[in-house]
Design a protein around this nucleic acid. Structure first.
Lengths: 115, 115
DNA sequence: CTTTCCGCTTTCCGAGTCGTCAAGTACTTT
DNA sequence: AAAGTACTTGACGACTCGGAAAGCGGAAAG
């Protein structure tokens, strides 16, 4: 029996990962607002994803202010795709074809964010 | 922000509901084996789904032996479809579905810092 | 300097979830 | 009478969840 990666399955982390799958990197504050959680919640889930090796945290500065950027690792990207296909496998038992009705698109992320 | 119905989101219950969405009814034992859980786990999740009004339990006999059948209610069917569409909405932010094959716009990412 | 602010991180907490195991129920078969 | 079938229920420990609030290092303000 297929099991859904528990690291990704948590609603907040699913949102984070889905968001990050679309871009090169995203700022902490942007992710926090997009996902709709508090600082502490994002920080905790971010750490969980980092511990799993799914995201990478890059610390830097904007001017003199510290910033953190989140970025999906290759492992995280793979885990996400696997998760989605497992999800589809489960949901497809219902007869609904919902996620990913097309052949797997290239998610190699050629040019998403800003260089 | 859309939230994923927690009653359905639990992995075991997602499997149960997906399974039931495909059929009229299913026997307790069949669901238990298909989902891959113990009697007690299915019984508990079944009760949770019943309490939510998502499934209906029908008790009857096969010969002289008691049997229980699970059946999705209309409410459950609707909730499942809503859940799946929410899921798709979330996952589509990744660019993974056919709905949004387009490249995503740049996110708050000036990337001007030097670590 | 010293206080305040910023951008996270960490700790504490209570509430809820998860599955296993053991026991209970009600009826049937041996 | 004892054992089996088909669940149901309760107790249990091991989590996970998110909010509140305190912490922390540096920057800016006073």
């Amino acid at each position: 029996m297929i099991d859904l990666d528990p690291v990704i399955h948590a609603p907040v982390r699913l949102r984070i990962v889905s968001l990050l799958a679309a871009v090169e990197e995203a700022e902490f504050g942007f992710v926090r607002d997009a996902v709709g959680v508090s600082d502490s919640v994002l920080s905790k889930h971010g750490s969980a994803l980092e511990a799993a090796g799914y995201v990478q945290l890059r610390k830097g500065y904007v001017g003199k202010r510290p910033r953190t950027w989140y970025r999906l690792t290759d492992l995280g990207r793979t885990a996400f795709r696997t998760y989605v296909s497992h999800l589809q496998e489960i949901v497809s038992t219902s007869g609904l074809t919902v996620l990913q009705p097309e052949a797997t698109p290239p998610v190699g992320n050629p040019a998403s964010g800003v260089p």
